[in-house]
C-alpha cells in the first residue's frame, strides 16, 4: 500500500548502486544516517555557497538573453552602481561640480574623470590588472576629501586640476570593476557588456550633474553663492569622505 501512496525516491550511492525507497520514510532516515552520518548544516557556509550560486545563475540568465536585452541590463546595472548604490561616486562628482561654475572647466574635469575610470574599469574587468579593495576603497574616500578641500581653498579650479581628477578617476574605475566582477560578466560578450556598463555609469553621472545644476540654477550668480553654498557643501562632502576613509581603514 505504501508503494501506492508514497511517491518513490531514488538514491544513488557512490558506486552507482542506486535504490528506490518505497519504505517508510523513517527507515530511509536511519539508513542515510548510518551510511553518511548526520548532515551538519553551517549557516555561514550555506550563505557563501548561495551567493556564489546566485552569481552563476545571473551569468546563465545573461548568456541566454538576446544582445539588446543584455545591453539594457548592463546599462541599468551601470546606472544603479551610481544611483543609488554608488554614494561615494556621487559625492566625488558633486565635489567636481562645486569646484567651478564655468561650463568649460567642469567639462574638462568630468571628461578626464570619465576617460580615466573607463580605462581602469576595462583593464581590471579584462583581468589585466587586479587591485585589492582594501587599498582602493580608502583611497577613493581620500580622493573625495581632496577635491572637496580644494574647492574650499581655491576660488577657481586650477589648470592642473584635470590631471589630478584623471588620476582619481583611475582609482574609481578600479572600484567599479570590483562591483562589476561581483555582479558577474558573461564570458562570451565581455567587451559589449563592459561598454554597456560604462554607458550606464555615464548616464548616472550625468543625472547627478543635471540635478545638481538645476538645484543651484537660480542662485549660482548670487554674491553669497560661494560663501553660503559652495564652501559649506564642499566641507560637508570632505567630512563625509573623511569619515569613509576612517571607516574603511580602521573600522
Amino acid at each position: 500500500m505504501i508503494m501506492r501512496f508514497l511517491f518513490p525516491f531514488i538514491f544513488l550511492s557512490i558506486l552507482c548502486l542506486s535504490f528506490r525507497a518505497q519504505s517508510h520514510p523513517e527507515d530511509e532516515l536511519i539508513i542515510r544516517e548510518i551510511e553518511e552520518g548526520q548532515l551538519e548544516v553551517q549557516d555561514q557556509q550555506v550563505s557563501a555557497e548561495y551567493a556564489a550560486a546566485l552569481k552563476r545563475q545571473r551569468i546563465r540568465k545573461l548568456s541566454a538573453m538576446p544582445w539588446y536585452e543584455k545591453f539594457f541590463v548592463f546599462v541599468k546595472a551601470g546606472i544603479e552602481h551610481i544611483i543609488p548604490k554608488g554614494l561615494d561616486h556621487i559625492l566625488f562628482v558633486l565635489g567636481l561640480f562645486f569646484s567651478s561654475l564655468i561650463l568649460g572647466s567642469l567639462l574638462w574635469q568630468v571628461s578626464a574623470f570619465t576617460l580615466a575610470h573607463t580605462i581602469t574599469l576595462a583593464v581590471a574587468a579584462l583581468g589585466i590588472v587586479q587591485a585589492p579593495a582594501g587599498i582602493v576603497e580608502p583611497l577613493i574616500a581620500l580622493s573625495i576629501v581632496w577635491v572637496a578641500a580644494e574647492n574650499c581653498i581655491f576660488k577657481e579650479a586650477s589648470k592642473w586640476r584635470p590631471f589630478v581628477v584623471f588620476s582619481f578617476g583611475l582609482l574609481h574605475g578600479l572600484g567599479f570593476a570590483s562591483v562589476l566582477s561581483e555582479y558577474g560578466l558573461p564570458q562570451g560578450n565581455l567587451v559589449p557588456s563592459l561598454l554597456a556598463f560604462n554607458i550606464g555609469v555615464e548616464v548616472g553621472q550625468l543625472i547627478v550633474l543635471v540635478v545638481a545644476a538645476l538645484l543651484v540654477w537660480f542662485i549660482r550668480d548670487k554674491s553669497w553663492y560661494r560663501k553660503r553654498v559652495q564652501i559649506p557643501a564642499s566641507i560637508m562632502i570632505a567630512l563625509v569622505g573623511l569619515f569613509w576613509f576612517v571607516e574603511r581603514v580602521f573600522l
Binding site: F9, I10, F11, L12, S13, I14, S18, R32, E36, L39, V41, Q42, Q45, V46, E49, A53
Partner: peptide, 9 residues
C-alpha cells in the same frame, strides 16, 4: 553544497 545530502538521486 553543505546543506545537501551526499550521493545522487
Amino acid at each position: 553544497r553543505s546543506n545537501k545530502r551526499g550521493g545522487a538521486w
